Amino acid sequence: MFTEAQLYSPVTRTGDGDVTVHLSDEHPGVHDPEYRVRRNAIAALALAYRPGEPAPKIDYTDEEQQVWRIVSAELARKHRTYACAEVLASAARLDLPADHIPQLDDVTAALTPLTGFRYVPAAGLVPLREFFGSFAEREFHSTQYIRHHSAPLYTPEPDAIHEIIGHANQIASPRFAAIYETVGAAVARLTTDTALKFLADVFWFSMEFGVVRERGEIRCYGAGLLSSYGELDEFRHAELRPLDVMAMGTAAYDITHYQPILYCAESISEIEDVIGGFFAEMDDDTPLRAKRDQKRPPVAEAS
Score class of each variant (00 low, 15 high):
M1K: 07
E4G: 14
L7P: 03
S9A: 15
R13I: 13
T14K: 03
G15W: 02
G17C: 09
D18W: 11
D18H: 14
V21H: 02
H22K: 13
S24A: 13
V30M: 04
E34K: 02
Y35R: 04
A44R: 05
A44G: 06
R50P: 05
P56M: 12
T61C: 02
D62H: 03
E63P: 02
Q66W: 06
V67I: 08
W68G: 01
S72V: 00
A73C: 10
R77T: 12
Y82K: 11
A85C: 08
A89C: 13
S90N: 06
S90Y: 07
D95S: 15
D95F: 04
D95L: 06
A98P: 01
Q103F: 03
T108S: 15
G116Y: 10
F117T: 07
R118H: 15
Y119I: 14
V120H: 05
A122I: 00
G124W: 04
G124Q: 06
L128T: 12
E130H: 09
F131D: 03
F132K: 03
F132V: 12
G133L: 14
A136K: 13
A136I: 11
E137L: 13
F140W: 02
S142M: 04
S142L: 07
T143I: 04
T143R: 00
Q144F: 02
P152M: 00
L153S: 01
T155Y: 01
P158E: 00
D159V: 05
D159Q: 01
A160T: 14
I164A: 08
P174N: 06
P174S: 10
F176W: 04
I179E: 01
T182P: 02
A185Y: 12
A186C: 08
T191F: 02
D193F: 00
T194D: 13
K197G: 15
L199D: 00
L199E: 00
F203A: 10
F205Q: 00
F205E: 02
E208S: 07
F209D: 05
F209G: 01
G210A: 10
G210L: 10
R219C: 11
C220T: 12
A223K: 10
L226D: 01
S228E: 07
F235V: 06
H237M: 13
P242S: 14
V245F: 09
V245P: 02
G249N: 00
T250Y: 07
T250F: 09
A251V: 15
A252W: 13
Y253I: 08
I255W: 07
I255G: 08
H257T: 13
Y258P: 00
P260A: 10
P260W: 06
L262M: 14
L262I: 02
L262V: 10
Y263I: 11
E266F: 05
E266S: 14
S267C: 12
S269G: 15
E272Y: 09
D273F: 09
V274E: 06
V274K: 05
I275D: 05
G277V: 06
F279G: 06
A280E: 07
D283R: 10
D284Y: 10
D285R: 12
P287S: 05
P287F: 10
A290T: 03
R292A: 15
R296Q: 11
V299P: 01
